[in-house]
Amino acid sequence: MDAVATRVCLSTTEAIARYRDMVYGIALTHTGNRSDAEDVFQEVFLVYHRKQPSLEGDERCKAWLITTTLNCARQLTASSWRRKVVPLYESTVDGRDEERDGDRFAFRTEEQDAVFAALQQLPRKYRSVLHLFYFEDMSVAQIALALGIEAGTVKVQLSRGRAQMRERLKGEYFDE
């Protein structure tokens, strides 16, 4: 195809510029602490840079970054567990462990911290879908495309994840 140069795949710089917050946000939701999230963040873009995946379209780049971030985060947390490291910050929220406390991501309000903690406790698949829906403003259809699952499945996971969130937050912030 002697076509216009339409390699729409973003350069690494462009990809970072456009998606760094998204990648970091997903990493944070799926690792629960600052340093792991930064490791994942770095890893994802390094892999992107090395592979320069031949993705046609911004949307493909985005989906690639989403799935790669999820994979990296899962691998990292899996290995963390093997090392008996406790990445989730609810155990450190009381500030006993200063090192960990410094590592945890603190939101502006207690309510936001509580919501984030509840999100952390969700099964991974619900967490992914909820994150993309609420934090990335993606629609059900877009999430389905990005994750390669059916829209109906996304809806069900959204609904259940939401229900579990509320269950966990009951009595704390939404039930007063």
């Binding site: 031949s54 993705l55 493909r60 989906a63 690639w64 799935t67 790669t68 999820l70 390669g148």
Partner: peptide, 9 residues
């Protein structure tokens, strides 16, 4: 399932 979908097409 998710990880198998590297969305390069």
């Amino acid at each position: 399932a998710t990880s198998q979908i590297a969305p390069a097409v």
